[in-house]
Structure formats: structure tokens, C-alpha cells
Amino acid sequence: MPLPPLPDSAIDLGVHAADWRTAVRLAGNALRRSGATRDSYTERMIQVIDEFGAYIVIGPGLALAHARPGPDVLADGLSVVTLATPVVFGHPHNDPVRVVIGLAVETADAHVHSVAELANIFNDPEAIPALANAATAEDVWRVIGATDVPRDVSAPAR
């Protein structure tokens, strides 16, 4: 199953975040900008970490920000945010975080498959540093293997 779309508007490179909340919020803003989510999804991603801790930091320097499917997910989507200064999330092994991937999916089944697809990408140990050092959206797409699928942003929100 292919990854959710990663449009140019959902890529934010070399940005500054003072703390993990801000970093996750940037990933959420990128999802919202691309038309995948509403603001409340961003807050739900933060709540997951408040409730369960930094387990979303699943590899060295990489956080996978996500929440359950819900009405604030308008379309499946990915976002990629790279941080100019690494941020501590509180994970015992994988801090500090340089790359935050935002993930939103409409159904739980899609969630399982698209996340599994991410495993195929990041099993390559070069993938996280390559993303962290990406200078352009093209660099990001090269790592993720995704394409800039245009989304009809003029479509009325459901």
C-alpha cells in the first residue's frame, strides 16, 4: 500500500522549534496547510505524547507524530518537518529529534499499512540523516519515495 501524499506544502525544512510541543505543532501545521487535517488533529497528536510519553520517537532522531483517525482528518497525508536545532522529546535512546514526520489517515486499516510502508524506508540507516540534511523538497521526496500529488484544495471540506 502506498504512502499517503506528501505535497510540497507539507514540507517544512530547517525550521526552529523551542521544544517538542512546538516541533509537533509545526508538523501538524504542515498537515493542515496541505489540506489533510484541521487544527484539532494537531492538538490530538500532542495529547498522544502527553498521555503516553515520547514513544513516538521510534528511531534515532526521528519522531512519528500521529493520532487516531477522526473527523478532523480530511484526507490521508504525510508531513515532514526538519529542525534547525535538534529538540529533546524525552526518549531514553533516540533523542534528540531532528526530523518530525506527521501522519494522518482516515481509517485505521490505512494507518497500519502506511505506517508499515515507513518501516521499509527507515530500515535504511541512511534515511534519517538524509532527511535531516535535506535542503529541498526534492531531497525529501528522494528519501521518502513519495511524489508531489496535487490535492484539490478547492474541494469543500467535509
Binding site: V48, E51, I58, H66, H111, V112, H113, V115, A116, A119
Partner: peptide, 12 residues
Amino acid sequence: GAGVGTSAILKV
């Protein structure tokens, strides 16, 4: 934690 998220990567 949040259901069917990162556990899918672990499973694979």
C-alpha cells in the same frame, strides 16, 4: 499508545 500507529512498524 495511540492504537494502530507505531506498532505497525514494530510488527513489520
